[in-house]
Amino acid sequence: MLVFRCPYCGVDAEETELSPGGEAHLTRFGPGSSDAEFSGYLFDRENPKGVHFERWRHSYGCGKWFHAARCTATLEVFGTYPAQTTEPPKDILDTLAKKRPGWTWRELGAK
């Protein structure tokens, strides 16, 4: 069973206390974007076997959305961080560089 530490209230919350919210750091495309950008934003997902960044909600706790870095092949949790960001914080990237050298995901950061 997955256990995440909620970055807002500090509680170690297990899976039944949380709701999964899908892929994190999606760039929102709206009016003015191309068809490919818009359908990519709506439908295409990363779905990696390995390192993944996700949104989770502490539904039965503080109720806030946060982000988590997790491995989909082993269910190892690398850390959680607040949602008000466009990329993972440095300490999580450092952990990943140590634990999963050579990991890849799609390009991060604000566009």
């Binding site: 069973m1 039944t16 999964p20 779905n47 990696p48 076997k49 996700e54 989909t72």
Partner: peptide, 12 residues
């Protein structure tokens, strides 16, 4: 409800 490749699911 979450991405998973481990071929085992959650107990609940």
């Amino acid at each position: 409800g979450f991405n998973n490749y481990t071929q085992r699911g959650s107990f609940q």
